[in-house]
Design a protein around this nucleic acid. Sequence first.
DNA 1: AATAGCCCCAACCGCCTACAA
DNA 2: GTTGTAGGCGGTTGGGGCTAT
Length: 292
Amino acid sequence: MPTNTKTLSSNYSGKDDSELRRGQWILEEDSLLIRYIERHGEGQWNLLAKRSGLRRTGKSCRLRWLNYLKPDVKRGNLSPEEQLLILDLHSKMGNRWSKIARYLPGRTDNEIKNYWRTRVHKQARHLNIDTKSREFQNMIRCYWMPRLKQKIGGKTSISSAVLNQNPTISQPLEINTFQHFTATISPPPQILVQEEINMSGTMYNLDVEKQNTEADCCTSSFIFPSEPMDMSKTAQFPECPPFYCGDNNGYDMVSFNLQESVSADSAPNFPGNSAGDCYVAENNWFDSDFFM
DNA sequence: AATAGCCCCAACCGCCTACAA
DNA sequence: GTTGTAGGCGGTTGGGGCTAT
């Protein structure tokens, strides 16, 4: 629900009715917009802007409604499930925020875009990696997404409190948990089934047997148990099959210890630095508020 | 307590597409 | 085929809040 608590502001004095208002919406404007849409429905935004009495552009009204006032808009942090879905869909669709948003009921393209820019881009920046680079894609797929899956699994099978208190404990992932999750995701109704399969085969059409077969790609040869991750090696690997990485049996994800200290200043050549191992802080990726 | 710097996110901007006249 | 308009999309900005010093 909207949480705009602003009241009538000085720039809403009505002194100059001919001027369009810009900037933050106030309570009165929200009420006007909601009331108008309740009576006349969505659409015809320019007409709405004129007739509703709002001194806003049609575009602005549309945006305010879709991103904030619409009753089914979800507020609050993205769940790990939602984050995981975003990462996967982004790997397949790129910056098609509105398309991605269709797979997350109640979430807007704007919200997803902001999530990507603030969280994902931030990490890439800290690591000195281009988000479009293969290294970063691999990192997302073979480290970040498994961690999210792990977190999702932890809700039902592992006490997250215990894990937080014991960051050195190996954390086996219960793959079934994730399978259950993927099975519950509903693709947007307007997208044809064939497209779902082509676009996101393993996501919505999870094939366990295939998963296990393809698992070889990302086994311990990719993430070394009890060893720091050498990012220079990740680039040599073929792309991990989408969503295979749910099975981390044999991994010690925690030992995949990436130390923050190198992330910005001291590791300028991080992704392709073949001269030495590169580390990123574990905390940076999982234990911090990164996943919320 | 003050303040500088950073982060998040709502809102804006410009471009593109679809469609009607 | 051309033009005008509406709506949608992705990129960017700026203000407010939070945090570190």
